[in-house]
Computed example of a mutant assay.
Amino acid sequence: MRRGFTLIEVLVVLIILGLIAALIVPRITSRVDEARVNTTKLQLKALKNALEQFKLDNGFYPTTEQGLKALVEKPTVPPEPKNWKQYMEKLPKDGWGNDFIYVSPAGSRPYELKSAGPDGVEGTEDDISVWDL
Rank of each mutant, 00 (worst) to 15 (best):
M1R: 07
M1A: 08
R3P: 00
R3M: 05
F5E: 03
T6F: 05
L7Q: 06
E9V: 06
V10P: 01
V10L: 13
V10H: 03
V13S: 12
V13K: 02
I16G: 03
L17A: 14
I20Y: 02
I20E: 02
I20L: 15
A22N: 06
A22P: 03
L23D: 08
L23N: 09
L23M: 08
L23W: 11
R27F: 07
R27G: 15
R27D: 04
I28W: 11
T29Q: 11
S30I: 03
R31T: 09
V32M: 05
D33F: 06
D33R: 01
A35L: 08
R36K: 15
V37Y: 00
V37M: 07
L44A: 08
L44D: 01
K45H: 14
A46I: 11
L47F: 03
K48N: 11
A50N: 08
L51R: 01
L51G: 00
L51I: 11
E52K: 12
F54A: 04
F54G: 07
F54D: 03
K55D: 13
L56K: 15
L56A: 14
D57E: 12
N58Q: 13
F60K: 15
Y61S: 05
Y61A: 12
Y61N: 02
E65L: 13
Q66R: 13
Q66Y: 12
G67S: 12
L68E: 03
L68K: 04
K69C: 07
K69R: 15
A70Q: 03
L71W: 02
V72E: 09
P75I: 13
P75D: 15
P75M: 09
T76W: 10
T76P: 10
V77K: 15
V77S: 13
P78Y: 09
P78L: 11
P79S: 10
P79A: 12
K82V: 15
N83Y: 07
K85Y: 07
K85D: 10
E89D: 12
K90Y: 07
K93L: 13
K93Y: 02
K93F: 12
G95F: 02
W96Q: 03
G97C: 04
G97D: 00
G97P: 04
F100D: 00
I101V: 11
I101Y: 13
I101S: 06
Y102R: 00
V103M: 04
G107H: 05
G107Y: 08
S108C: 01
S108Y: 04
R109T: 02
P110A: 08
P110T: 02
P110N: 09
Y111V: 05
E112A: 05
S115V: 00
G117W: 00
D119V: 03
D119E: 05
G120V: 00
E122R: 06
E122W: 04
E122S: 08
E122G: 06
D127H: 06
D127Q: 10
D127A: 06
S129G: 07
S129K: 14
V130C: 11
